[in-house]
Amino acid sequence: MRKTDILDVVSRKLAPFMFLFGLYLVSHGDLSPGGGFQGGVVIASGVILLAMAKGSAAAAALLPLRRLAVTEAVVFGLILAAGFAGVVTGVGFLADVLYDGSPLPVVRTPFVFILNLLIGLKVGAGASLICLHLFAQE
């Protein structure tokens, strides 16, 4: 496939902003529309854009497949751990452990923020991983 400079330049300029926007969606999920799933997919689409423009080898150099796989596994463990944190503190599986009893609504909800962050990481890593693997087939 012949590539033009336009694709190369645009994707390089665009990808960081996609990452930034994805991070925003992930980190502000408790306040505004968005959240871990959506933000994660936006981040992954940035990775995919880079992989398409620069080739899957370049993308894999930036984000080694193995590191992505490890990230996904570790984050899965962390999400389960977050669930069990509620069990340990006695509020129940997957319950909000960081809520300190102060009158609601508070400005930010740390537990939801952390869950969003974990889910964003996991979805971003997972979706990138699938696509990079499929690109590597060609």
Partner: peptide, 16 residues
């Protein structure tokens, strides 16, 4: 809002 503290109700459902 009062139970989960999430200002975004969609988030209060899917993470609460």
């Amino acid at each position: 809002l009062a139970q989960t503290g999430a200002a975004n109700l969609v988030t209060s459902i899917y993470l609460g």
